[in-house]
């Protein structure tokens, strides 16, 4: 297991380097002059030149790349023209909100998706199965931002049972920051009213974001359960009189979970992408909204910062999934450390 771990860590470092190459390429090599972008739309030619020299943008590309790497590794991601803060400070402020949203949506997707997948497989071709499959195909096809808008229209604007958007109501003061995760902080401080308000604001974005992931988790889990339930060892267990519940929950699920886990890792990344749209709909103060607001005002360095943070998160999620994989399936472990 240790050799496996070491290889995975090495791979993670390599991937991170690759990601930095991509963000560097987009920001320094793509058409569109970074000095021009950094100077803002109203800058004169001499101001642009000054910034070009200040940021070292007149030096050869390899030198610039070295500068860029040193900057990123020491936590310097540049400065936002729009918020006038460093990108690192902005990200530290907005990231916890995104983390809360994505984690909540993923928990919901796994919590609903795995049982639905099992039910769909066990009651194959009954109405339970048909209904689940309709939901799962729709979940992938429905535009999340549109679904979010329609939920807003129905539940917030017409029925008025949930807030329209934002992280907290105007009249609610945020709790003292401990973890910077609002729900956790409210819980720690015992601020029940704040907790209720924070959760009420989280319902619609979480449900909207969870839907596509839920759909693919159901799909994969159903397919894998069907495949596993056909195996000889299941037939054998059944012949020996092992209860159906035990067969499904203990024998089949463990094997079916391996591909499902891979899907969860993959979907986590998609969710980080989807959060850009969902945060825009619900005015959720996370890094997605931050990236969109920056992109719309051609504020370049924040977008690169968000890309790095999301890429890093996705890589870490897949790293965890890989470890879980190795733990669940000894064959993976041995083939990787060989």
């Amino acid at each position: 297991m240790l050799g496996y771990l070491a290889r995975r860590v090495l791979l993670l470092g390599l991937m991170l380097f690759g990601l930095l190459c991509i963000t560097f390429a987009i920001s320094h090599v793509a058409p569109g002059d970074p000095a021009r972008l950094a100077a803002g739309p109203d800058a004169t030619a001499s101001m642009v030149e000054k910034i070009r020299a200040e940021y070292g943008l007149d030096r050869p590309l390899p030198v610039q790349f070295g500068q860029y790497l040193r900057g990123v590794l020491s936590g310097d991601l540049g400065r936002s023209l729009r918020t006038r803060e460093t990108v690192a400070a902005d990200l530290a402020r907005y990231f916890p909100n995104t983390f809360e949203l994505v984690t909540g949506a993923m928990l919901l997707a796994v919590g609903l998706g795995v049982p639905l997948g099992i039910l769909s497989a066990v009651y194959r071709d009954t109405w339970v199965d048909q209904l689940t499959r309709v939901v799962s195909v729709s979940g992938i096809a429905i535009p999340a931002f549109w679904a979010g808008l329609m939920l807003q229209l129905l539940l917030a604007l017409h029925l008025g049972i949930l807030p329209l958007g934002g992280r907290l109501g105007l009249m609610t003061a945020p709790p003292a920051p401990v973890t910077h995760l609002l729900v956790v902080d409210a819980l720690l401080g015992g601020h029940w009213r704040v907790l209720g308000d924070a959760l009420a604001h989280a319902v619609l974005p979480t449900v909207t974001l969870c839907f596509p992931a839920l759909a693919s988790i159901v799909r994969v889990n159903r397919a894998e359960m069907l495949e596993t339930l056909k195996q000889d060892y299941i037939v054998n267990a059944r012949a020996q009189g092992v209860s159906e519940l035990r067969i499904v929950a203990r024998y089949a699920l463990r094997n079916a979970m391996i591909p499902t886990l891979a899907m969860i890792g993959l979907r986590y990344g998609w969710m980080l992408g989807g959060t850009v749209l969902v945060e825009t709909v619900f005015d959720w103060p996370g890094i997605g909204l931050y990236a969109v607001a920056s992109a719309v005002s051609s504020d370049f360095q924040p977008i690169m910062g968000v890309t790095l943070v999301i890429g890093l998160n996705f890589m870490l999620a897949n790293f965890v999934v890989d470890l879980a994989y190795g733990w669940l399936d000894p064959r993976v472990r041995s083939s990787m450390s060989a």
């Binding site: 991509i22 990344g269 051609s298 690169m304 890309t307």
Partner: peptide, 14 residues
């Protein structure tokens, strides 16, 4: 390793 939409956002940003 980067969601397509995020990378596309970065490129359109550029």
């Amino acid at each position: 390793s980067v969601p397509a939409l995020v990378l596309a956002l970065a490129i359109v940003g550029a």
